[in-house]
Design a protein around this nucleic acid. Structure first.
Lengths: 245, 245
DNA sequence: TAGTGGTCTAGACCACTCC
DNA sequence: GAGTGGTCTAGACCACTAG
């Protein structure tokens, strides 16, 4: 009775191993992997089994495979294929509009109680320093999305070296933390005083609130609360029993 | 140059064939399929190839496979694993609360212009008869979700024989049209007069509007607009590069 | 205990694509 | 043209589970 989950089959064990190497950054995006036959030999399995592993990881988006050129570790995914909660700059660009990022705050400190509640951090983070950010995404010079964010400095200390006035935090994190995991919580809220003013909305206007919690390997990386004017934004999701593989 | 997409490989061709049989209802939920070796023989491929097909369809949720007992066509999926836009009765039950359905309207007629716009039906349905429904989902005797729905009678004529006062339309459709495809559009809206009154909310309260369009085999089955009080409801979605297969 | 799916192998041929 | 992944096969053993 080992305490870790036993992975019995060869292909499951190898899949897990390779996935961890990619998730941990040991195999960075763009890295060229050995060819199927060599990988099969080094793992001590047949080519069919190795192919099953690589096809699986390719389906999951961890690697890109092409004939002749071989297998490379994939670039960080910009968005989920399932739901269009994108990189906001891309989102605006897709509308053919100009995009700007305005940083309001960037402070290294513990969260206040209300910030802590809004961003839904764990209780153990109540009095610990995080990087706290607020700012506005603008399209055509008009407010498009208000962002409030906490970043786990222990996991991404490099963010302290970045100029967040010119670098969009979400974009930077997306590039720096590939293959992270995210959960979204979506609600409708009535926009209150300060936030209404910032978004240039009447008080009480309906807004879509998206809370995205991103983690990697058990550790939270960033929690972000995005507030979109209700009429200006909608989320779209496709569900089909036939995932495109 | 054929006009239909060519599916070259054996496993792709067979997968598509079996999926269509299930989607079209020719193979009904619960049906016992022949064993791998027999299927392989009837399709004229090796058992490995057949296994690849069946494993794929099993991953996609079309069939359930168990050793010894064999392969059966899966029961209709109650919800997407990705996002919790559920059968509302189940949703309420999960909260441990009592659930009731109250039918307001059930009319067979063309939609009015505003109904047509809200439900986002195609233009060719502007003057055609559909089954138009409105009603309220209630939890603990209080309004939980206001529903406005159009049903395509041509696709599901059986719904006209159902007592919609006691049968929840969404539940019935879920059972009757397994393996359909759905898209969701999610917005925040300010609740207006009549709907605010029905939901027992102050005018202007933020609500989550979910528009779900369900189709099967190119035909729309039902479009439904669900209006949830913003504070009372939230949608949750998990995104991970590691789908549980 | 017998029947089913789950997995694995060694070898083969093909298709695509970069050089 | 050569090298890579994509696919397929025939056969084998194993693991689980219903009867």
């Amino acid at each position: 009775m080992s305490e870790t989950k036993p992975v019995e089959t060869h292909h499951a064990r190898i899949t897990e191993d390779m996935r961890q190497r990619i998730l941990s950054g040991q195999w960075e995006p763009g890295r060229q992997l050995p060819k199927e036959t060599d990988l099969a030999e080094s793992y001590g399995v047949s080519r069919m089994t190795m192919n099953k592993v690589l096809a699986q990881l390719s389906r999951e988006g961890f690697m890109v495979r092409r004939r002749r050129s071989g297998t490379v570790v994939a670039q960080p995914r910009v968005q989920s294929a399932v739901m269009a909660i994108n990189d906001i700059a891309q989102e605006v660009a897709a509308l053919g509009q100009s995009y700007e990022w305005h940083l309001f705050k960037a402070q290294q400190r513990p969260l206040s109680e209300s910030e802590h509640r809004l961003l839904d951090l764990g209780g153990e983070w109540r009095d610990k320093d995080v990087l706290f950010l607020t700012g506005m995404h603008a399209a055509r010079g008009e407010p498009f999305c208000y962002e409030m964010r906490a970043v786990n400095i222990a996991v991404v200390p490099e963010i302290l070296t970045v100029d967040l006035k010119t670098t969009v935090p979400g974009q930077w994190l997306l590039k720096s933390m590939p293959f992270s995991r995210a959960s979204h919580r979506i609600r409708a809220v009535n926009c209150l005083g300060r936030e209404a003013k910032l978004l240039e909305l009447p008080v009480g206007a309906a807004c879509l609130e998206v809370l995205r919690k991103t983690s990697i390997e058990q550790n939270w990386v960033t929690h972000v609360r995005l507030l979109y004017p209700g009429e200006a934004h909608q989320l779209v999701a496709e569900f089909t029993p036939q995932p495109k593989l």
